[in-house]
Amino acid sequence: MNIIVCIKQVPDAASVKWDREKGTLIRDGVKSVINPFDYNAIEAALQVRDELGGTVTAVTMGPPQAEEAIREAISLGVDQGVVVSDRAFAGADTLATTYTLSKAIEKLGGADLVFCGKQAIDGDTAQVGPGLSVRLGIPCVTCIGDMEVLEGGKGLRVKRMNEFGYDLVEVEFPALFTTIASLNTPRVPSLKGKMRAKKAKIPVWTAEDIGADPDRIGLKGSPTQVASTYIPTFEARKEMLEGSPEEQVEALVERLKGAGIL
């Protein structure tokens, strides 16, 4: 059983500061962490492996330092990992990213089961998982909140969460699933895992290594382009209600009555 978990290194939301004046990120001292939803993907992959056997391989596309994310995944129990890294990947949108990841998975010998976090907290698109499933030619179920292995280990029965509740769906392998936080409680690294992570050799694959078509990666392979960026402005319409708490509440009630709400 070949299980792949796709992870992404993202800026730690807690350490990112924003310069509102200039509209730029203050990157000094920003730590990189594994995307939070990806921990649930890793845990799901490990649980299936522990039940059905096989190998869990973590794949990430990013700069060379994304190797840290792979090491952390190995410390959690992932068997092996690979960093897909090349300057030619820069500027990739989700279409180019899914192509690149699919070429890496192809080089790994394909996948019986793929887990991705439902979205990365830096881009928030939630597009890579479903897009990747099309590249791999396998079914995809997004936002799973619960899972169990089907009788005979042929697939998974999952709760696909939606606005109204959930759908209980069954999918046979090979398949791809995207995970949400309530799916599981990710384990913490063991001492043995940490030792293994330290010693692990993490291959770095370039565009050439995975046999990627140069026209389908990075900026060239990305249909979407950023035309411009700007800092959002919020309409200022502030009226501060003054006085004692009683007077403040009275003033508010009056205004809401005036607006026809009360």
């Binding site: 939301a13 990112v16 924003w18 509102r20 509209g23 990120l25 907290i121 830096d122 881009g123 928030d124 249909p223 979407t224 382009q225 950023v226 035309a227 411009s228 960026t229 700007y230 800092i231 959002p232």
Partner: peptide
């Protein structure tokens, strides 16, 4: 929105 809404990006295809 990009960067948690700190920036707005206009995308074209």
């Amino acid at each position: 929105p990009a960067f948690g809404g700190n920036l707005l990006a206009t995308i074209v295809c």
